[in-house]
Amino acid sequence: MFAAYASTTDADRPLDALVLGDRPDPEPADGWTTVTVRAASLNHHDLWSLRGVGLDASRLPMILGTDAAGVDTDGNDVVVHSVVSDPEWRGDETLDPKRSLLSERHPGTLAEQVAVPRRNLVPKPSALSFEDAACVPTAWLTAYRMLFTRARVVPGQTVLVQGAGGGVATALITLGAAAGARMWVTSRDPAKAERTTALGAERVFASGERLPERVDAVMETVGAATWKHSLRSVRPGGTVVTCGATSGHGAETELNRVFFLQLQIVGSTMGTRDELERLLAFLERTGIRPVVDRTVALRDVREGLSAMEQGDVFGKVVVTL
């Protein structure tokens, strides 16, 4: 089958490690099944894998991709939940120390077919296209968990999203606004920041700009470049939720501010299968849909990865098969 995979890794030039070509068809283990992929989407995880972060040489070659929507062997339209937990694990699979994402230990979704545990299949609502559904399992699920599980955002609260253009950021803005929260956004790119108003953002600010008032919660995906601003933007007793650090991990903690203002700093990673089901139902009922920056064929996936590496995207890059 045709696939996009990492044949090696390159920390400085990740796209040099990308190969497009044939790979063996999947052979599902017991309890697993095969999904024929109709659409997938790209994430920064794919670039990190090509750089060798979380993917060592012993697992190469590795098919990339964590997100997919397609058709199972029984002809059902499905969305793939990409968090693979230990078969014996019970409960929140994001807490399983043995968990992994597709494309870390098991071949990923940027292929004509992918093998997944049967329990990882979620019915695709008929109202969602394959392209929309393929955007959901990583970026949108991450945003959903950050907002509603970890920060427990409720209607009327004010939420600051650091960074405007990526898949998680656009999901945070869209989901939060649909749930009745006041969504504020910061960005280094004024054009991207302004585009978020169409998604439901109430106010947009330059990166690091002092806010007119402190917010109830901050959604932090940027890391070192925005961390200080995040701590100084949240109200006493408020919450900062972090799911990543694209600008680096070496931020000053400012513990005096944390304990004196009784701030809650909460980590968040991906989401559970149950949360994915609830998220899909939320999209179906509200009519909101993922923001798609561009759609490329699998053979042209290098174009999408290059745009993402350069930061030249607003929303998700969808890959069709």
Rank of each mutant, 00 (worst) to 15 (best):
R150T: 12
H106P: 03
G165F: 09
T272H: 11
P26A: 13
A134N: 05
R152E: 13
N256T: 05
E88M: 08
M219K: 05
T138Y: 01
A297M: 11
G250H: 02
R145F: 06
R90E: 12
R105G: 01
D92T: 11
M1A: 02
P290N: 08
G304R: 02
D67L: 04
S233V: 02
D16C: 10
R273G: 03
S233Q: 01
K192I: 09
R23P: 11
G75S: 10
G163T: 13
L60C: 11
D22E: 12
T109F: 01
E104Y: 01
A17T: 05
R118A: 09
T158V: 13
F259Q: 02
G167Y: 12
S207P: 08
A307N: 08
V19Y: 07
V222S: 01
T246H: 00
A169T: 12
E93P: 00
K124D: 06
I265W: 04
V80N: 10
D77Q: 06
D56E: 13
V319S: 07
G166K: 07
P137G: 01
E220S: 08
L101E: 02
A11C: 13
A133V: 12
L15R: 13
T170E: 12
P107T: 09
L50A: 14
V301E: 06
F314L: 06
T73F: 08
R294C: 12
L60P: 07
R278S: 15
H45K: 01
T295A: 08
T226C: 06
G54Q: 10
I63V: 15
Q310F: 06
N256Y: 02
V136E: 00
N43W: 04
E309N: 05
K316H: 07
P87L: 05
E194F: 07
R119S: 00
V35K: 00
R118F: 04
G315S: 14
T221R: 06
M62W: 07
T226S: 12
P14M: 13
R38L: 09
N43E: 06
A139T: 03
L255P: 05
D312S: 12
A281C: 08
F130I: 07
S41D: 00
R105D: 03
R118H: 04
G304M: 03
L60K: 08
H44T: 06
T8I: 09
E112R: 15
P190C: 15
V53H: 14
G315D: 11
